[in-house]
Amino acid sequence: MRKLFVILLLLIIAGGITLSLKEIPFGIPKTKIGDHFINKGVEETGSVNIVTSVVVGYRGFDTLGEITVLFAATIGLGAVIGTFRKNSVNREVEAASLIVYTGCRFLFPVILLVGTYIFIHGHLTPGGGFQGGAIIASAFLLMYLGCSNKRIKENLSKTVEMIGGLTFIAVGIIGLAIGQDFLFNFLPKGEPAELLSAGIIPIVYIAIGLKVGSELAGIIDNLIQKS
């Protein structure tokens, strides 16, 4: 009975959508603001990657809101699950074999290096803070699955996350303190396609990468412990 009603409702919605799909033709330019960002992006922000200059330069305040949402979700998860941290290992998991253990220990610094490279070069190649942070968190996930008796130290992860968040807000407030807007680009822009260019964009992306990586690793750490 319920399934019939749901299928009927979805058919009505699908009919309405097919009637209005002619208004959005595929492959034809639809907005005008994209042309302005592409034409003036390199000389106004200095970064060669246009998506980075939109995320951090033109719409940097939305990125601040997104980091706040991720922070609130991490705190909510920690408060609801309510683990208390024992210093002993999780005894109900048997240890992995020698090949898996050695392979995980070998791969862990390599994956950390790839993640750090991706968020440092966010303004030159496709990449950035969120992608690099997710790759760092998946390196920690590999460590939890392969070698089950190593844990990250809680104070180190808290300190790294705190430094990342405070750097982002401090860079924004410096822009406000010298008389311009919040998140104003006050460092010199330099040559495009160099590593030290584009003003505050590398600093902001390094802060975002460290914060997102340690938060996502902290989510996995909270879920895997006994409560």
Binding site: N49, V51, T52, I118, P126, G127, G128, F130, Q131, A134, I135, A137, S138, L141, L216, I219, I220, L223, I224
Partner: peptide, 26 residues
């Protein structure tokens, strides 16, 4: 869209699957 492809592969395919498997185990 290479930025979005990298983000979806790293977040959607690795971390969300890991979180779900840990939740099903509990």
């Amino acid at each position: 869209a290479p930025d979005v492809a990298m983000a979806e592969a790293a977040i959607g395919a690795a971390l969300v699957t890991g979180i779900f498997v840990i939740a099903v185990k509990r």
